[in-house]
Computed example of a mutant assay.
Amino acid sequence: MIKRISKLVTLLVAFGLVFAFSVGSFAQEPPVVGISTGSSGTSWRNIMIAALEEVGNEYKAAGKIADYKIVNNITNGDATEQANILRDFISQGVDIIMVNPNSPDALNGVISEAQDEGILVIAYDATVTAPNVLNVTLDHYAWNTKNAEYICSTLQKGNAIQIYGLDGHPANNDRIRATDDVLKKYPDIKLIANTTGGWDQTKAKEVATQIIGSGQQIDAVFTQDGMAFGVLSAFLDANKLPKVMFGDPGTAFFKEWKKLRDQGADFKACAQPNPPGIGGTAFRMALQLYNGKNFKTGILVDNTYFYKVGMFITDDNFDEGWELLKDQPDDFLLSEIMPEDQVAELFE
């Protein structure tokens, strides 16, 4: 009981809701962590899971956690199934739940159930609207605004297609909104196709092949994590090229990009990592909160920590990205996990 009260007070203090209790007066036991990934099976997701395992194994070996358990959805992107996974975690008595949410609000009910049991809940990679939950994510709107602005400012006039991620996923929703808003400033660019690729390379290639097969002129491609190589492959198979597109920050795409650059092709791209290691970063923050630490003033925006991506690669600085990728396997994507000491600096 004391353990549960301690965790609940930790949660409330972390968000500035309780000031009259001293968390240090309770004895904290090493927590059990339940992690719901929401979906799996893509290169990005596999790297994300590896990052969670890296931090989980590090903490378990050091005795900082008792154990952790990662559960993937059987049906990728399904919020109802994910809610059931979270309920299983509650019934198993975990102390921390980390969730990569498949919906911004469909999980709010089960999150409330977890919090009623004194469980600390952290959302990572995307956000939830439930109160008193730390969200650890990119600003996906700002992230894709930068991509879309580069594509539109480069093209200026022509036809574009968008092959986006999982329907309904909060990160995907923000990115689509960013594309829409940027396109409003470029009336001479027409979006002629707008469909899901499910953040899956194979599906994205199939979708792109169908659109290309329609015979319409395609000058630009808006896409997202782990799909650009599939889309570019569809164009190459058809002996066609867009003039500009978003590219995967990974080895396979960069190899093809380099070939096109060496050939002097009329082709430009931009690539911006969305680090799969965000899950590992969130894991570190979760443990800080569980152990009673508070974020410093000004770090969070509406209970959200926005991870800042420093790298943005275009033809102008292509060599910078190529140096990081040229010796890596084809399915490698640029990623990072915030080091423990840097995470600790965010807390009082």
Rank of each mutant, 00 (worst) to 15 (best):
V32D: 11
V32G: 05
V33L: 09
V33H: 13
V33M: 10
G34A: 01
G34W: 07
G34I: 04
I35S: 00
I35W: 00
I35E: 00
S36W: 01
S36T: 03
T37F: 00
S40W: 05
G41R: 00
G41K: 02
G41H: 00
S43Y: 15
S43E: 10
S43D: 14
W44C: 08
W44V: 14
W44Q: 11
R45G: 09
R45T: 06
R45E: 03
N46W: 12
N46L: 12
N46E: 13
I47W: 08
I47N: 09
I49D: 10
A50T: 14
A50E: 14
A51R: 09
A51W: 13
E53K: 13
E54D: 06
E54R: 08
E54G: 02
E54S: 07
E54H: 10
V55R: 12
V55I: 10
G56L: 00
N57T: 03
N57G: 11
E58S: 02
E58R: 09
Y59H: 09
Y59V: 08
Y59C: 09
Y59W: 15
Y59S: 08
K60N: 14
K60Y: 12
K60A: 10
K60E: 15
A61H: 03
A61P: 05
A62P: 09
A62Q: 14
A62I: 07
A62S: 09
A62L: 11
G63W: 11
G63H: 05
K64E: 15
K64Q: 12
K64S: 12
I65A: 09
I65M: 07
I65C: 04
I65H: 11
A66Y: 08
D67H: 13
D67N: 14
D67F: 06
D67A: 15
Y68W: 13
Y68M: 03
K69H: 15
K69A: 12
K69S: 15
I70M: 10
V71C: 03
V71W: 04
V71R: 07
N73V: 02
N73C: 04
N73R: 00
I74Q: 15
I74D: 14
I74S: 15
I74H: 12
T75H: 07
T75L: 09
T75Q: 13
T75F: 05
T75W: 02
N76W: 03
N76T: 01
G77Y: 03
G77Q: 03
G77F: 02
A79V: 07
A79K: 03
T80K: 05
T80W: 01
T80F: 02
E81P: 08
E81R: 04
Q82E: 13
Q82C: 04
A83L: 03
A83F: 09
A83S: 15
N84E: 11
I85A: 05
I85V: 11
I85R: 13
L86C: 10
L86N: 10
L86D: 05
L86G: 08
L86K: 06
R87H: 08
R87Q: 06
R87Y: 08
D88I: 06
D88Q: 11
F89C: 06
I90V: 14
I90H: 12
I90L: 11
I90T: 09
S91H: 10
S91V: 01
S91C: 06
